[in-house]
Design a protein around this nucleic acid. Sequence first.
DNA 1: CACAACTCTATTGTGCACAATCTATTTGCG
DNA 2: CGCAAATAGATTGTGCACAATAGAGTTGTG
Lengths: 149, 149
Amino acid sequence: MTAQPQLALSAQLCLPLYAAARGVTRRYTELLSEVGLTYPQYVTMLALWDADVPLTVGEIGERLHLDSGTLTPVLKRLESAGYVARRRDTADERRVLVEPTPEGERLRKSIADVPERAWRGTGLELEDAKELRRLLDQLLHGLDASAPA
Amino acid sequence: MTAQPQLALSAQLCLPLYAAARGVTRRYTELLSEVGLTYPQYVTMLALWDADVPLTVGEIGERLHLDSGTLTPVLKRLESAGYVARRRDTADERRVLVEPTPEGERLRKSIADVPERAWRGTGLELEDAKELRRLLDQLLHGLDASAPA
DNA sequence: CACAACTCTATTGTGCACAATCTATTTGCG
DNA sequence: CGCAAATAGATTGTGCACAATAGAGTTGTG
């Protein structure tokens, strides 16, 4: 379109990314509604399940790229639902340690098939998924590296 | 991890997609704050600028994959800011036609460099951007095709 | 030990997303 | 024509995202 072809394409990359992320989130949300979880609540549980040790709010935020303003209410709802336990770190009272409850561990098994069900029918082959993941990781790395913070 | 390698990978594709979309949105938002626009307001303007004719709320929603519950308040804020005009379609009073005002057209030129500035520094080369766009379009198509609606 | 700077989480306020519902309007069909 | 079904948009309610700020707690330095 101009002497800078990257401009036109980049202008149109943000929209598919935005729409695809919401589309995938919507699909997960539908499946997760069976157990009363929202998508952000689900990915928070994923972070805790993966860790196998209690995480601070900040550590969860690093893994999900979310800040405390988002996580605090999410964690409170997960606590009300009985899926996580929160307690102040006695070694540093500024920190709050979060871990799954036994009920949270049971939840893990009961919704283990959600990812497979969510991606089924999207027509995304394994090789394409790998390539997509590679490009997204590269983009995330680039965003972090050039972030003002 | 199991006999179904796609499961493990798919489980980990939703998170980079989710984080990358928010990261890109955040970067656009920083640049757009100079003119007082949010990212959803910006993509709504993009849809109207691209169309060159008045669009109904539903037509904007098709292009952005957003519904009226999201678009109505966005359009009202854009109207308050003086960037778009809304009017009922006299041929079908159920419909609302939306188009940029002259000030909205001036805005187009004043923020034309935002996409280039947003993507600068992400380290995403043109070929990777093209491939990413192809995969996202494929995913979006797959999501639409297998959606319950 | 005092205390300023720093760190971590929580709170507040604005603006999306989206499901569910409502209202006004239009369109079919008998 | 008469009216049920369909359609378009707006409204309502819940739950994120995130910037800005607050406030409790910790640490480094003299």
